[in-house]
């Protein structure tokens, strides 16, 4: 029997998304806007956390948010109470945001007029991990009510994150949250990742989160400046 002919391809399946994400990243960098992708399971407190973040940042910075959900505008309406411009992306059943959806929803804003842009991903600990959105960094949220071993159950998304945020700390005692176990799980799947603890309700830990945001923004600005001086010298 004749051997089948092999046609070599070597094609990254997510190449289209990755390319769009690279374009977005360049666009964000040129506009000097720091972009944060928030991921977590449904109900871990992303919207409350973002609402508090926007409310606090809105005093000194120009901020905006894109929020992804399968359906409804509820989260956008909640977030708009912070005073920041917010846009809802309804994915119509798609379980994650893709770079194309971000690109298609930026036209209302002048990016150069923003300091921070937050992207609240669809509540899902699996699918969003594969899709780069051009963000500066990805923050994964874990609430104290979810179980300390969640990072071990969903290692892919925790491994892809740049900072882990433990939410609902005001409930920690009531649900007998084992902080050491949670830290160990997170560090096991992503050694060295910074971990923050917050309560969006009481505001505890939000200052440290805002300081983290500021340091990431400064870092991005330094990198952009170094890159532009390098290209000027070249």
């Amino acid at each position: 029997m004749q051997q089948p002919r092999i046609l070599e391809i070597r094609h990254n399946i997510l190449k289209k998304n990755d390319q769009l994400a690279r374009n977005l990243r360049a666009q964000f960098q040129a506009a000097n806007v720091c972009v944060v992708d928030l991921v977590s399971s449904p109900g871990s407190g992303k919207t409350a956390f973002l609402e508090e973040t926007l409310r606090r940042l809105n005093q000194d910075f120009r901020v905006a948010a894109l929020v992804g959900d399968l359906a409804t505008e509820n989260d956008a309406m909640r977030l708009a109470r912070s005073g920041a411009p917010v846009k809802q992306i309804q994915t119509a059943g798609i379980c994650h945001l893709e770079a194309e959806m971000i690109a298609n929803n930026l036209s209302d804003w002048n990016l150069a007029e923003l300091d921070y842009l937050f992207i609240e991903n669809v509540g899902n600990l699996v699918c969003p991990s594969s899709y780069d959105l051009g963000e500066n960094f990805r923050a994964v949220l874990l609430s104290v009510t979810e179980g300390e071993d969640k990072p071990l159950k969903y290692p892919t998304i925790f491994n892809s994150a740049d900072v882990a945020i433990i939410t609902k700390m005001d409930l920690a005692e009531a649900v007998e949250f084992d902080k050491d176990a949670a830290y160990a799980s997170i560090q096991s799947v992503r050694p060295g990742i910074p971990i923050l603890e917050v309560s969006s309700k009481s505001g505890a830990g939000i200052d440290a989160w805002l300081a983290f945001l500021k340091s990431e923004k400064d870092k991005a600005e330094r990198a952009a400046a170094a890159q532009s001086s390098q290209s000027t010298n070249a």
């Binding site: 002919r5 070599e8 391809i9 070597r10 399946i13």
Partner: peptide
């Protein structure tokens, strides 16, 4: 997540 090759049956 990479498509490496296709097998084609020339017959």
């Amino acid at each position: 997540l990479e498509l490496t090759s296709l097998e084609i049956d020339d017959e």
